[in-house]
């Protein structure tokens, strides 16, 4: 198999006596969607925070495209190609959808210290941003403030922002949350195409979406990965059934 794009090795994090992350190792390979599932309190959030840099692990490594990122800041990890999308919050709610994506294009170019040229006249920004909005089907809403977009549209905007950065691996934190069945279906189709841009580590509660999309699934319980495998392997794993899936499977 090819080299993993994102490799997490023996990651550990404790809060007092609680082992929130207890020796987690996960690989994300090119072109795959790797779903991370687990009951509430399993340590999914803690793990995501460590990967993106808002929490520092006690020990263990995180490598992105061969580079160690475990000791870097959030912004540095993002510049190296870690694309994270958020559950609820917009990038800049007061700004239009277009300006949100423009900001991401600007970040991707690494040039925020320009003080005089108006961004709206900067075609390198506006055109690149518009192209991303068209790709996610949000071009018609380009000038609407991000905070006034519908739930589903905010998700689309998040993806457009991720597309504007030179992302090597996506970290999607519950993209289906709060979506109706119809929106969920559209997004599922979209994520299926997104994996061609970069592999996706997907944290998701919506089991239908997970089973439809994931190439592999890791199950996290009490801070440990109790099983990793294909959809069928996970469905039929007795330990997973008792620990988590219950009557879902």
């Amino acid at each position: 198999m090819a080299e993993p794009v994102l490799a997490i090795r023996d990651l550990r994090k404790s809060f007092g006596a609680l082992k929130a992350t207890d020796g987690v190792s996960i690989d994300l390979y090119p072109g795959e969607i790797h779903a991370l599932i687990g009951p509430n309190g399993a340590g999914k959030s803690t793990l995501i925070h460590q990967i993106c840099g808002t929490l520092r692990q006690d020990s263990g490594q995180i490598r992105l495209a061969g580079q160690e990122i475990g000791t870097r800041t959030v912004a540095e990890r993002a510049r190296l190609g870690l694309g994270r999308t958020f559950q609820i919050s917009s990038l800049a709610g007061e700004f239009s959808a277009l300006r949100n994506v423009m900001l991401a294009v600007q970040a991707g170019q690494g040039s925020s210290f320009r003080f005089f040229k108006p961004v709206m006249h900067d075609r390198a920004l506006t055109e690149a941003a518009m192209e991303r909005l068209e790709r996610v089907g949000l071009a018609a809403r380009a000038h609407v403030p991000a905070s006034e977009l519908s739930h589903g549209e905010k998700r689309q905007l998040e993806i457009a922002i991720a597309l504007a950065l030179d992302v090597k691996a996506f970290l999607l934190d519950e993209p289906m949350a709060g979506m109706g069945p119809e929106g969920s279906k559209v997004l599922t189709g979209f994520l299926d195409r997104l994996r061609q841009e970069a592999p996706i580590l997907l944290v998701e509660h919506d089991m239908d979406a997970v089973f439809a999309l994931a190439d592999r699934i890791s199950v996290l319980v009490y801070g440990r990965v109790i099983a990793t495998g294909t959809v069928d392997e996970i469905r039929n794993d007795p330990a997973v059934r008792t620990a988590y899936l219950g009557d879902h499977a």
Partner: peptide, 25 residues
């Protein structure tokens, strides 16, 4: 209206999110 201004106003609106696209606040 410049790039710097856009980044500064975005940092005010959502600092964590701005860092996550690679701009250090």
């Amino acid at each position: 209206s410049s790039r710097f201004g856009a980044a500064l106003q975005a940092v005010r609106q959502n600092e964590v999110r701005v860092a996550s696209i690679g701009i250090s606040p």
